[in-house]
Amino acid sequence: MRSDGSAWSARRWLRSAGFAWAGVRHAYGTQANFRIECWAALGALGLCVWLRAPLAPVALACALVLSLELLNTALEAVVDLASPQRHPLAKIAKDAAAGAVLLGSAGAVLVGLSVLLPPLLARLGTG
């Protein structure tokens, strides 16, 4: 579809958002790790609310992990399309994308621990 030339078009935005949501639904329906990360994010955000801890750093860390997982899913699909047979470069691309998710997840765990652990320990009476 060609652009209508306007910088802002609600119709174009809604159409694009629909495509994006289809990608999220596909990942949730086909990628076990994405489902796990979605539920972990929901749990972490719920803890923020319960503990009255700062929401922004945890929400940003969750969004980063979920975004990286979506990019990993997209890259895997493109690599599979371009190289249906096993190829060393295809493996490198897939492994590097998975590594990005791993590093993002490790960072998110550190953010979660630094933001949530002190108020959790205080609430439990051990901090």
Rank of each mutant, 00 (worst) to 15 (best):
34 F>G: 09
34 F>D: 08
80 D>H: 09
44 A>Q: 00
53 A>T: 04
93 A>D: 03
90 A>W: 03
121 L>E: 08
107 G>A: 00
49 V>E: 05
28 Y>G: 11
104 G>I: 03
108 A>L: 06
2 R>F: 08
75 L>Y: 10
17 A>R: 15
56 A>C: 07
23 G>V: 05
3 S>Q: 07
92 I>R: 15
115 V>I: 10
70 L>C: 07
8 W>Y: 12
44 A>P: 07
6 S>D: 11
20 A>R: 13
79 V>C: 05
23 G>N: 09
64 L>V: 10
60 L>M: 14
6 S>C: 09
96 A>F: 08
99 G>P: 02
96 A>N: 08
53 A>I: 02
71 L>E: 13
76 E>C: 14
5 G>K: 04
127 G>F: 04
34 F>Q: 06
54 P>S: 13
38 C>E: 07
99 G>D: 04
73 T>D: 15
59 A>P: 02
37 E>Q: 15
8 W>N: 05
61 A>M: 01
56 A>D: 10
80 D>P: 01
30 T>D: 13
56 A>E: 12
113 L>H: 01
51 L>R: 02
108 A>E: 05
72 N>G: 02
84 P>V: 01
5 G>C: 09
112 G>S: 01
43 G>C: 03
85 Q>V: 02
22 A>H: 13
14 L>E: 09
66 L>T: 00
74 A>E: 14
67 S>P: 04
21 W>M: 15
115 V>Q: 09
75 L>D: 05
122 A>S: 07
36 I>A: 13
111 V>K: 02
45 L>P: 01
7 A>V: 04
36 I>C: 07
22 A>K: 11
1 M>S: 12
123 R>F: 06
5 G>L: 01
56 A>M: 12
39 W>C: 08
49 V>Q: 06
94 K>A: 10
87 H>R: 07
64 L>I: 03
117 L>H: 04
106 A>W: 15
119 P>K: 03
41 A>K: 00
83 S>H: 09
84 P>A: 00
122 A>L: 10
94 K>T: 08
17 A>L: 14
35 R>T: 14
77 A>E: 11
32 A>K: 12
60 L>N: 09
83 S>A: 08
21 W>D: 10
69 E>M: 11
124 L>N: 00
74 A>L: 15
19 F>E: 14
8 W>H: 09
75 L>A: 13
71 L>R: 13
106 A>D: 03
53 A>Q: 00
74 A>K: 08
126 T>P: 00
97 A>C: 07
96 A>I: 13
58 V>M: 07
59 A>I: 04
107 G>N: 03
12 R>A: 14
48 C>D: 02
47 L>I: 10
68 L>T: 03
50 W>V: 14
114 S>L: 14
101 V>D: 02
70 L>F: 05
81 L>Q: 09
96 A>G: 02
124 L>D: 00
33 N>T: 12
